[in-house]
């Protein structure tokens, strides 16, 4: 078991944000956390690596208590890709090398440099290695952020809306990259998402949050219409395209069909 969360609760200014969170994750699994805006998806992610300290509950990564670890120790076990990372006048190589920070004692070793090169090559970023990150596109910058989290050599990867504000091609590239990393290295990964169809296509498991609690959970392929309607408060149809669920909101004025929806930018 990579991750085991029990009875996690978080309050902000004595207002409960999350309650009774319980779930676990195996190596090689990608979990998508879904739910409406402001429901606490990002907060949950930040509780898992103790950026926010939960008021109750336990978080075990490979059976070790995260809340008892020092920040640098947490960073050795959990990689975190924030929603935004700021560009600086730094080469891609150095920006990824920064991910070795939890491992670096006094100075960067040859081993650190080799790990960075290897990660860049495997994530197909080696052609960008000497570019400055302030010259990269949003999609490229996000790939650098993922590479940075990977060279931390974590057992668990947390991604906060990894594809928001990216174009379609970048979305597919980023999610393919995340999927490959999870499969090849057998790590656990959790991502928060807004785009249901993208989440269902790439994730193994989904977790729906509503009103600060887990509304439902399950295998990505078995999501039902009722769950989505209850969580988002919007009537939807679920079509199956090539054996995958495709969720389409029902509008009075535009009868939703898969054929019609294929023309829209976010469908697959």
């Amino acid at each position: 078991m990579i991750l085991d969360i029990n009875g996690l609760a978080f309050t902000y200014n004595s207002h409960p944000v999350l309650e009774g969170m319980e779930f676990s994750l195996q190596g090689g699994e990608l979990l998508a956390i879904l739910g409406p805006n402001g429901v606490g998806k990002t907060t949950l992610l930040k509780c898992i690596n103790a950026i926010h300290r939960p008021m109750q509950g336990t978080i075990l990564v490979e059976e070790r208590d995260v809340l008892a670890m020092r920040p640098a120790e947490i960073a050795l076990n959990i990689g975190y890709v924030a929603q935004r990372s700021e560009p600086a006048r730094l080469t891609v190589f150095d920006a990824v090398l920064m991910g070795r920070k939890p491992h670096i004692r006094w100075r960067v070793t040859e081993h650190d440099l080799q790990i960075v090169e290897s990660a860049l090559r495997r994530l197909r970023l080696d052609a960008l290695a000497m570019r400055h990150i302030d010259q990269l596109s949003g999609g490229e910058l996000q790939k650098v952020a993922i590479a940075r989290a990977m060279v931390q050599e974590p057992r668990l990867l947390l991604l906060d809306e990894p594809t928001s504000s990216l174009d379609l091609k970048s979305q597919v590239e980023i999610l393919t990259m995340i999927r490959r990393v999870v499969d090849e290295h057998r790590i656990g990964a959790i991502m928060t998402m807004h785009d249901l169809n993208t989440a269902l296509r790439y994730a193994d498991k989904v977790l729906f949050l509503k009103d600060g609690v887990i509304h439902s959970r399950g295998c990505a392929r078995e999501v039902t219409r009722e769950v989505i309607e209850e969580v988002y408060g919007l009537p939807v149809h679920i079509h199956h395209v090539h054996g995958r669920p495709l969720i389409v909101p029902v509008h009075d004025h535009s009868p939703a069909t898969p054929e019609h929806h294929h023309a829209l930018p976010h469908s697959h």
């Binding site: 950026i51 960073a75 924030a82 935004r84 700021e86 989290a149 931390q152």
Partner: peptide
């Protein structure tokens, strides 16, 4: 120096790298 580099990348990213 590494802490300042990490903070340049954003507070959240820096926290994820174990920077206080």
């Amino acid at each position: 120096a590494w802490n300042y580099n990490a903070i340049d990348a954003g507070d959240e990213t820096a926290r994820g790298l174990g920077v206080r």
